[in-house]
Amino acid sequence: MTADGGNHRAERDVELAEQLQEFARRFVDGSGPLDPEAVVAQAAEAVPSALAAGLTLIHDDERPRTLAATHPIVEEVDTIQYDTGEGPCLEAIEENDLIVANDLAGDDRWPKFCVRAVSETDVRSMFGVRIFLGPGNRGALNFYATEKHAFSELDRGIGAVFSTLASLALQHALEQRKSDNLLTALESSRQIGMAMGILMSSRLLTAEEAFDQLRKASQHLHRRVREVAEEVMHTGELPVVPPRTDGKD
C-alpha cells in the first residue's frame, strides 16, 4: 500500500469513527433522528464509492418494499428485484449475510434481474448486507454504484457496520409503529366504551344493545364506529340516521 493510500484509508477510518460516535450520541440522548432514512443517508455518505444506499424490508410473506433510499435509482433497481424475485439484496436477506455483485453485466446468479437491471438502469455494482430484526421481519442494507467492481473490502466492512445501525433504527421504527397503533386502539376503545355508557344511561339499554346501535349507525352513515362514538360523547345522542328506502333496518 502506498503512503497516499494509507493516509486515505486512515482519513476514512477517522471519518467513520466520528460518524459512529455521532450516531451513538443521538441514540443515547435522543437529540437526533433515529430513523431508517437518517441511517441510510449516513451509510451512503460513509461509502463514497456508492451512488446510493437503500433499505429493503420484508414483513412476513408480503412483497418486499424499499423503506428508505437516497436516490431514485434505488427504487428502480429494487422494483426489478421484487418483480423478478431475485437479486443481490433479496439473496442477502434470505440466504447470506453479505452478497456482492461486482459486474451485473457478467453475473449469472440472477439472470432475470441482471438482464433488466443492465438494460433499464445505470447500476453495475451492488452489495447487500442482511439486517437482523424480530420475528416476521427481514431486511437488508444495500449499496449501488454505476461502475463495475466499485466496492472495496473496506466499503463492504463499512456497510456491515452500518447494517447494525440500520437494524437498531428499523427496530426502533417498528416498535414505535406498534406503540402508535396500540395507543390508537386504546383511544378508540375508550371512546366506544364511553359512548356505550351514555346510550345505556339515556336509553336504558344493555351493553350489547348500546354497541349494536353504534354499529348500525356506523353502517348506515358509512362512518367508523369510533367516529360515531366520538359524536355521541360530544352531543349525548346518536347522529341522525336517514331512513332506509330498501325496507331494511
Rank of each mutant, 00 (worst) to 15 (best):
L57Y: 04
L57P: 01
L57R: 05
I58F: 04
H59R: 15
H59A: 01
H59D: 02
H59V: 02
D60L: 00
D60K: 11
D60A: 10
D61E: 14
E62T: 13
E62G: 15
E62F: 12
R63D: 09
R63Y: 09
R63L: 05
P64E: 03
P64V: 11
P64N: 12
P64K: 06
P64C: 01
R65Q: 11
T66A: 09
L67G: 00
L67H: 12
L67D: 09
A68G: 10
A69V: 12
T70N: 03
H71Q: 14
H71W: 12
P72F: 01
P72T: 10
I73T: 10
I73A: 10
V74P: 05
E75S: 13
E75Y: 12
E75F: 05
E75D: 15
E76S: 11
E76D: 14
E76I: 02
E76Y: 00
V77P: 00
D78T: 04
D78V: 05
D78H: 14
D78N: 14
T79H: 03
T79K: 04
I80W: 10
I80S: 00
Y82P: 02
Y82N: 05
Y82R: 13
Y82F: 15
T84F: 08
T84L: 05
G85H: 14
E86N: 11
E86M: 00
E86V: 02
P88G: 13
L90I: 05
L90Q: 05
E91D: 15
E91R: 13
A92E: 07
A92G: 06
A92M: 08
I93E: 03
